[in-house]
Amino acid sequence: MAVQNNGIREHWYDGILDALKIYIPGNSTFRTMRARNARTGTLFILPFIIGFLVFMCRPLVESFIFSFNDVTLVPGQGYAQSFVGINNFKHALLVDPEYNEYLLEEVGQMIINTIATLVISFVVAVILNQDFKGRTLCRAIFFLPVILSSGVLPGIEHQNEFYDMMSGMAEAMEGSSGVNISEALQQLLSVSGVGNQVFEVVFTMIDSIYDIVMASGIQIIVFLSGLQSISPSLYEAADVEGCSAWESFWKITFPMVSPLLLVNCIYTIIDFFMKNDNKVMELIYQVTYQDFKFGISAAMSWMYFGIALAFIGISSFIITKAVKSYE
């Protein structure tokens, strides 16, 4: 009965033993209130358990096996596979001309985008938390991208050369006075002797601000709700003690909201990795359904998933460390 006392488990398998007692009749635990409640609870999540085992666990294991096999379709019988070791991974990384490049590109883009999304959504949330006219309208508009940039829509928008053409025409109309802002800034900075490499990152951010704002609808709302849960009396107290707005931002607002940083960071990374206009996703889809190389596509997507997991792990490690230091 070590399990019930204080809820401390003595062995790792105690949980499983406990589970057996709860689900199989014929012992003293089975008829207790606790066991009955546990059974009801299990009944509630039963759909999930079934779904997870059938539609998630099995395919996951299967595709993991696929990634080490050469899979071919056999008409009428399904598919045949033969073990090839890590050749699929080798093929994806060394032979496929695009996978490597796309992967690096997406990861780099992801790091920049995640940081930029977090910063922008935080700033916007702070602004939206202030009192001004048209705040409700602004909120509605900032949340609109959640709808407008889902599914097919961003992918199609991306290939929109038409808008480039339009803006090109507008520039041509204005003659030589049409200056690209980021280019001009770049020139200015390089003249003043600042390292180009560092600023390139910033310029990519500026250039992709549209994508970033379109991807930060949910993050803004999450930050905003965090900001609204801060009690106003804290600010009042700080004000009375002679704290400036700037100080109270860093001493009150930021530490109070920083736990949400982790949620948003993870959400942003996942969102970015799963976007439809992601080049790697497109490549995987193409390899699967146009080339019918199931083994290679499985290897590709497993590597992709591994990288995503690694990034989520790293970022949550960093953020929990950083947030802890505030406490």
């Binding site: 999540i45 997870f52 595709s63 799963m274 889809y285 699967t288 995503a308 997991l309």
Partner: peptide, 23 residues
């Protein structure tokens, strides 16, 4: 099981698409 829910959020559907398609 809750860890499985989190897993469900973070697994890209492309990872399992081949196998689901086949099954």
């Amino acid at each position: 099981w809750f860890a499985c829910v989190v897993l469900l959020i973070i697994v890209p559907p492309t990872t399992i698409q081949t196998s689901l398609y086949m099954s």
